[in-house]
Simulated scan of single mutants.
Amino acid sequence: MVDNLQVEKSGQIIEGEIVMKLKTIGIVVMTASLLLGLSQTTIAREPPVAKMVQIEGQVEYTRNGKRWNPVRRTKYLFPGYKIKTGANGSGKLINQQTGESQELGSDSEIEVTIDGIALVSGNLTEPQSESVSVFQSLMNKFAKAQRYTTVRRSLTSNDDKVCDNKVRTIRKISLSPAHPDLVWRNACPEFSYRLIIDGAATDISAQSTSEMIRHTISGIEPGEHSYRVEVLDKDGTVYIPRKDSTFVWVSGKDEKEMVSTLDSLNDDVFMQTNYLEEKGMYVAAMDAYRDYFSENPDDNDMRPLLIQSYNDLKLTNLKQSEARLYNAVLEEDY
């Protein structure tokens, strides 16, 4: 038996899904705890009450009235936001609770409240029936994502230097020719890995500067495959998970159908990633979120969705880093 071999204990924690009411989602929570040497803080926000689509010309928004940022694509609007349009600006607003739409004209300004859209100046049409509302699923998703925004900081600075060699992977995931990567947490700069798929092993060198390990899968037949990630140091194997995970390789035909559906969702990152997650394409969803925040770093109120994506993929280091950023921006706003 290899020295220092650690085997993951069996047992699964089944979390009950908690559907939070709209009024409770917006409670601001600030918690400080010294229990077990951990400090925890978090601030919760309400889910969006509307989204803006079909954006034309100059359109800007502000979260706190201090700085205005351009709106270039589908934008989810949270309570407290203000939107203004320039001489050539316009857009369509869709209420997430009723599904009704309103047209916002040029040289106009609106304010987003918990009850909906309020016109400050300019032109805003009367509400019109648009589509079936997805508000309940949207509210539930944001409520769930808020659970992962808690920041846990060790009170002992030396703890940050200790590597956790227990690398866990998502239990089931879908991959495809366009999205062929498996990902997992980079446990320690000097650790290397052994990826075993259907009993066949591939050694992966240490990647000291990588925020996560990505490995591209190829030459796989459509269908379900088992995999696990073992962790090694210079002396040998230091961690083997007790149970294998699985991935489903999506056929080219099925992927074309997914691409068609994604195209129909235009540039709505929430609807796109929600669809990808429903299909088990968690890495593809994470990449879509990362691309979105690369282009829209100021859209902090959407950040819990990326934090939850990291949580789903067991990327705990990235989850905590993103949660710290999210809470820091909220503290600045308040």
Rank of each mutant, 00 (worst) to 15 (best):
V2W: 06
L5I: 14
S10K: 13
G11P: 00
Q12F: 10
Q12E: 11
M20F: 08
K23A: 15
T24A: 11
I25Q: 15
G26V: 10
T31C: 03
S33P: 06
L36Q: 14
A44D: 08
P47H: 02
K51L: 13
T62Q: 07
Y76W: 13
F78T: 04
Y81S: 02
T85L: 08
N88D: 15
I94C: 01
Q96E: 14
Q97F: 09
S101C: 00
G105K: 05
G116C: 01
N123S: 14
S131F: 02
V132L: 12
S133I: 09
L138C: 08
Q146Y: 03
T149N: 05
R152S: 12
R152C: 03
K161V: 08
D164W: 02
D164M: 07
I170Y: 06
I173H: 05
N186E: 13
N186M: 10
C188F: 08
F191H: 15
S192L: 08
I197V: 15
I197K: 08
D198E: 09
T202V: 13
I204C: 03
S205Q: 12
A206P: 04
Q207A: 13
S208C: 02
S210R: 03
E211W: 02
S218Q: 12
I220E: 06
P222V: 08
G223K: 03
L232Q: 10
K234D: 10
R242F: 09
F247W: 12
V248Q: 15
W249A: 04
V250P: 01
G252F: 04
G252K: 14
D267S: 10
D267H: 14
N274C: 01
Y275F: 15
L276S: 02
G280P: 04
M281S: 12
V283C: 01
D291W: 00
S294V: 01
N296M: 07
P297N: 08
P297A: 13
P304E: 09
D312K: 09
K314M: 14
L318T: 04
L318A: 06
L325F: 09
A328M: 06
L330W: 05
